[in-house]
Design a protein around this nucleic acid. Structure first.
Lengths: 112, 112
DNA sequence: TCCTTATATGCGCATATACGAATATACTCA
DNA sequence: TGAGTATATTCGTATATGCGCATATAAGGA
């Protein structure tokens, strides 16, 4: 519980969470969408994964991250809380715009 | 939101929250109940208050802390999450025992 | 195999946070 | 007013955290 709360109580990680709930994203999409360096994006993603908030899978050379289904079911109230307070996250609107741009230009050549 | 999450994602502060939801407590009760030093207890309480999770009032020389009603209403899902996961807090059972002892021996001479 | 791309991780630095001890402040009561 | 008690705050220190840079690892394609 503490690990989950610590993981999510960071602005950058909240921003990641807020975008990734829309759809799975690979590291380079997160980087581009939020304007993070590669190492920083990777590190925050691994913290979220270690806490059980995100899950990941590999497709070719890309690592895709998604919200962990167990997090949604086991930490339901916290999940609902985050979902209903997304707009309070600093830079949320901006991130959403960038998200749409990123998805539009098909950053990662892989598509199913 | 970030401030609230940061405030509550600390083991000591979670322990304080877990006991204080039962009833208002003064600083010396928190100290005794959780085995904290005076300065440490005071500091954590002020962080929780600053984040809007707790509220306080003075009675003679005692400072009583309680859960902030606005927190309960405005951060409902988070509040529910915390309430339903109290037993996961490290040392919770022990703290509860100490809470009962503290309340029994009427630490602070003031009673309404 | 060599090169390119994507991702993870080690390292060092700057800053944030938690803590105890000491001190300051506020209130009560004799 | 002065002693005693409760609480808040300051200070110094130890540890944790976030970050960029450099490097390691892994996968794909020429």
């Amino acid at each position: 519980m503490i690990e989950i709360l610590k993981a999510i109580s960071d602005e950058t990680r909240l921003r990641i969470f807020a975008q990734i709930i829309k759809d799975d994203m690979c590291v380079c999409e997160i980087e581009a969408c939020l304007g993070l360096t590669q190492s920083n994006a990777s590190r925050h993603l691994s913290i979220l994964k270690k806490a059980g908030i995100l899950d990941s899978y590999k497709k070719a050379q890309w690592a895709y991250f998604k919200v962990n289904e167990n997090f949604i079911s086991q930490e339901r109230e916290l999940y609902e809380y985050l979902i209903s307070h997304l707009s309070e996250i600093a830079g949320y609107e901006e991130d959403c715009k960038n998200y749409n741009k990123c998805k539009a230009c098909d950053l990662c050549s892989f598509k199913e």
